[in-house]
Simulated assay, not measured.
Amino acid sequence: MSLVEKFMIDGQYEKLLVANQLDPKKVLQIAKLPRDTFAHQHLKLTEQEYFALINAIETLANDPLFATKLVASDDIETFSPPIFAAYCSKNGYQFLKRLAQYKKLIGPVIYELTSQQDVVTVTLTTFSAKEILPPFFVKSEFAFMMHLISSATNQKIKPVKITATFQDDSVALIEYYGVHFEFASSNTITFKLTDLLFPFTTENTSMLEYLEPELKKKLAELAVDESYAKRVRTALVELLPRGKAAIGAIAQSLGVSKRTLQRKLKSENTSFQQQLTATREMLAKNYLLNDTLTPDDIAFLLAYQETNSFLRAFNAWTGMSAQKYRQEKS
């Protein structure tokens, strides 16, 4: 299947910005989007445009807790049918499962749910290896989950663990989320299963019966990337920090032979080397946002044998040195 080229963004975005004292025109100007973007009832943005919009909001907000305030806006649960459908669920666990199922309808992000013993973890990933999830977006998604689960259960639900591809140790943020943001190669939030089993006071089976057929129809129409390229990138994110960058190791993790993997990737007009390069570039840009990581550390995390190999590669990817990239993003 091919990648989703554009994502449907709800037209209420403009109202949400105004309600939080942000000028929509300035947001669009910074994001370099057309002036009439918000004039459409349903906005269609590419992945790059979507994250440009998010970054513009963060630039104007200038508030470490703005992401949490944005998702706490009145009636945020009615912002779009996929969100409202999830809000009508039986409990927090079903809520997260529905978000994982429908989130791709309203934004270029994938929710991956994993359950282990008494906890449930949600991992946020992008559709392509080229795009990095902006820190503001990650914080708002985590706050969004917490806010709606707490609101629907009348309980103060907080995670037991958060990992992120960036660092933010602000006191206000830690007080809000209840935990530190642990630096890692992926963006995850973990909840106690018992917290997710509190019943939702907003459960509405009749509304779900009305909404879900149309949502499932839209899902069926989406060309979601379930390709081998996506599977390779996911495996690389996990295995590169362990020093495994060879196609044989990735093929083994996916349960296929090296030859089969090469054939599958070729049928998708890509190669293992292209996916390895794209994943390393994405991770390198994330790691450079962390001032405590040295070039040696980053080279190790990307499974390079020598630091100079990483530095040369980064220059080839971006046209600038790793040091200059870090300075521009700091």
Rank of each mutant, 00 (worst) to 15 (best):
L60M: 06
T59G: 02
Q48G: 03
Q41G: 12
E49H: 01
L65C: 06
I54K: 08
T37Y: 13
T68S: 14
A52T: 00
L53S: 03
K44Q: 13
A67P: 06
L43A: 11
H40F: 15
D63M: 13
H40K: 15
D36S: 15
A39R: 14
A67W: 12
T59W: 03
D63I: 04
H42F: 15
I57P: 01
I54T: 07
H42A: 14
T37R: 15
A67I: 11
Q41V: 13
F38H: 14
A61L: 05
K44E: 15
E47W: 04
E58R: 06
D63Q: 03
F38Y: 15
Q48F: 10
L43G: 12
T46I: 00
K44W: 13
K44R: 13
F38P: 11
L43V: 07
F51D: 01
A52L: 02
N55Q: 12
F66I: 12
I54P: 01
E58N: 05
F66R: 05
K44N: 15
L43F: 09
A39P: 04
A61G: 04
F66D: 14
E58D: 13
L53P: 03
L65R: 10
T68Y: 14
A52V: 00
T46A: 01
N62D: 11
E49G: 05
Y50S: 12
F66A: 06
I57D: 04
N55D: 13
N55F: 01
T37I: 09
I57T: 07
K44T: 09
E58F: 02
D36R: 15
N55C: 11
E49I: 02
A52C: 00
I54L: 06
A67H: 13
K44G: 11
E47H: 12
I54V: 09
L65F: 08
L45E: 06
T37P: 10
Q48T: 07
E49F: 00
L60H: 07
I57F: 01
A39Y: 08
A56S: 03
Q48N: 02
L60F: 08
N62I: 07
A52D: 04
L53K: 08
L60V: 11
K44D: 10
Q48W: 04
E47R: 04
D36P: 11
E47Y: 09
T68V: 11
F51S: 08
L65A: 06
T68P: 05
E49N: 03
F38S: 15
E47S: 10
I57Q: 10
D63F: 08
T46K: 01
H40W: 14
Q41P: 07
H42C: 06
T46G: 03
A56Q: 00
T37V: 12
A56D: 00
N55L: 09
I57N: 02
Y50A: 10
I54H: 05
L60Q: 06
E49D: 06
Q41C: 08
L60Y: 07
I57A: 10
H42G: 12
F51T: 01
A52K: 00
Y50N: 12
N55K: 09
I57W: 02
I54G: 01
K44H: 15
D63K: 10
F66G: 06
N62Y: 02
L60T: 07
E49K: 04
T68W: 15
A67D: 12
L65V: 05
F51K: 02
I57Y: 01
T59L: 10
P64E: 11
L45R: 11
Q41R: 14
L45P: 12
T68C: 14
I57G: 01
I57V: 14
L53E: 10
A39L: 14
F51L: 04
